[in-house]
Amino acid sequence: MPREAEPSLNERAFVVQALQEGLRLDGRAFDQFRGLDLKFGDHYGVADVTLGKTRVLANVSAEVTAPYIDRPFDGIFTITTELSPMASPAFEVNRPTETEVLLSRLLEKTVRRSNALDTESLCLIAGQKCWSIRVDLHVLSHDGNLIDGSCLAVVAALRHFRRPDTSIEGETLTVYTPAEREPVPLSWLHSPFCITFSFYGEEGEIMLLDATLLEEQLRVSSCIISLNKHGEICQIAKLGGTPVEAVSLIQCASAALTKGKELSTLLDQKLAEDSKRRDKGGLLAELSAENER
């Protein structure tokens, strides 16, 4: 199994030295993100997030299936992550690395367990038919901070997604094509965002946001906080690593809140831009046509 290429001793020493002098390799401030870009695809439910040289793509699809027997009133919601060798030669297909397991667990906890998507709304006929919403996450290029990027992509894709409209008359369930009825958005409760903190130094006293791959390899420990703009923590994961003072973790939480709000605003803005772009020929044109008659 190919291992991740490890940085040399010189790089290790230099990066830590530079951080102690308050400098980052790419000249960013410690709490500054790299250039973040979010694009939506032509279809509903495709989000492409670029964070510096890291790039992730999330795609949402929906189909009608039978619900799980033990949960007849809930729809099915799954997130699958794929870290292919395209992102880094250290990843192999069908053999999940530790990075992949932690990433999918984290998305699961952040988005699924925090009830960001109302799964009860996906139920069509209790115990018989429900929507199965599936998010496929592909990492196209890996230059650190996969988690923040992936989480944003998943949330953005889900909020962008529209599922076909349905109606029930008696026992018959009708699924309408987009031409018949405008597809409907998912019933979305809140948008969580992941913020990853990387710690450096003997005592973990230096704290970085949005670490690059090299910085990630050299950190002594990390802490991932997921929260929404209402200040609700959905998940905290500081999985081992050098112990960090409790006080600085609380500082992280408040820093994460500020950052989470920023991301939330960005996402809202991008979604609004996208719907504006789509509306040009769509609903507005339709409405005006009706008025003419």
Binding site: N10, F14, Q17, A18, E21, L23, L25, D26, G27
Partner: peptide, 16 residues
């Protein structure tokens, strides 16, 4: 490319 200097800032600057 390997860059060395007395000052960390210079190394960063040359690298960038």
């Amino acid at each position: 490319m390997w860059v060395n200097s007395e000052s960390t800032k210079t190394v960063l600057l040359v690298g960038r």
